[in-house]
Write a protein that binds this DNA or RNA. Sequence first.
DNA 1: AAGCTTTCGCTACGAGCCGTAGCGTAACTG
DNA 2: CAGTTACGCTACGGCTCGTAGCGAAAGCTT
Lengths: 209, 209
Amino acid sequence: MQSRTSAPRATGGRPRSATADAAILAATRAALVELGWSKLTLGDVATRAGVAKTTLYRRWAGKNELVVDAVAALFDELELPDRGNLAADVEGVVLQFAAILARPEAKSGLMSVVAESIRDDALRDRIRSSIVERQKLLVLEGRARAQQRGELPEDNDPEAAARTADLIFDVIAGAVVHRALVSAEPVDADWTRSFTRLLLNGLTASATT
Amino acid sequence: MQSRTSAPRATGGRPRSATADAAILAATRAALVELGWSKLTLGDVATRAGVAKTTLYRRWAGKNELVVDAVAALFDELELPDRGNLAADVEGVVLQFAAILARPEAKSGLMSVVAESIRDDALRDRIRSSIVERQKLLVLEGRARAQQRGELPEDNDPEAAARTADLIFDVIAGAVVHRALVSAEPVDADWTRSFTRLLLNGLTASATT
DNA sequence: AAGCTTTCGCTACGAGCCGTAGCGTAACTG
DNA sequence: CAGTTACGCTACGGCTCGTAGCGAAAGCTT
């Protein structure tokens, strides 16, 4: 689960303190809330966690990796209860995303690490595996359910199905993130309902109501 | 146009060099391409621009403001030719966004300043007025055209219309940004066509084809 | 032309953070 | 018990930040 610095992990010797790991990640989230990404320093995080700065550097290569792991933990709670129909499931996904994005440590951290990942492929993979893929699973799950219910057509061409799933994911995640972080408006029940209607019925069919 | 540091601008005296302004912004974009946001330093930008570091600080308060202005200039070229119908206009908007986001200086800069804006309201307003509102105008323009053509219903309730416009904007901009910067996949003609069909017809109506 | 005002380039500076090295100590294994 | 690894602590060179102070340059005004 923890995708920290590649663990050489020879046999004997003193084991790494799991307590320290948790303390560091918690301290990182607290620092994100108070200071934001740019003013967050690793020395400060170490002090908050009650840990020596060198200990922190032994486990994480830098600020980017540390924050990714700290933020990724927020996505552990993601799951999608079956609400009986496609529209309700979509609203469920959106509200799940929104609940996480509403937390200040997610706001401060997520965009920053994604920005950094543009010039760092390793970081991008790390984000993908520990955050993005977990979100995408919810979309795939909801889609599979809808197909079982007959609300969406079955996939005949698996490759085209994958492209469609990617498209839907980008639309949902992108819209929620843009609403929450760029427009800085709340992703509440009203907005979620309007968005779901738009996603399911399309622009032409959905009235301005 | 230039939303630089609030200009005291008394009467006489040596005027600020407009050449220096352009050189600094160009140098900032070049540094963004080469170094990315986190490794970009103001001292380096000043050197590239052939300008003293103090000159740079006299005009911009810091890294954030400078990069916003440097990136905002990329959005000057935004405009939306009338392509005759709603679907074609939507594709036009998407491809306009995509063309800008494909440039490395936009990739590196945009996400970073948005991330910083989460903890800086003044920066958020600056981004809104110099970047986001310009994008939104395209959406509003396309929407008005579609209503004139009869492709979309007229607005009866202006407040609801504004909410709908915001929703559409978040969906379009969010999806394109997410595709380009998070999924890191190209926003090409194929994807644009699929996205447009989804946006106009909805999930239920659009086949996986 | 002289005088006033503002900008410019340059140098220098204290401050803060980075990331690492070195050391002695602590914790766990066979 | 010996071997191995993690830990806390201190110290360090290097880099960037943002500002101050200076003399010179570039305009505008009378």
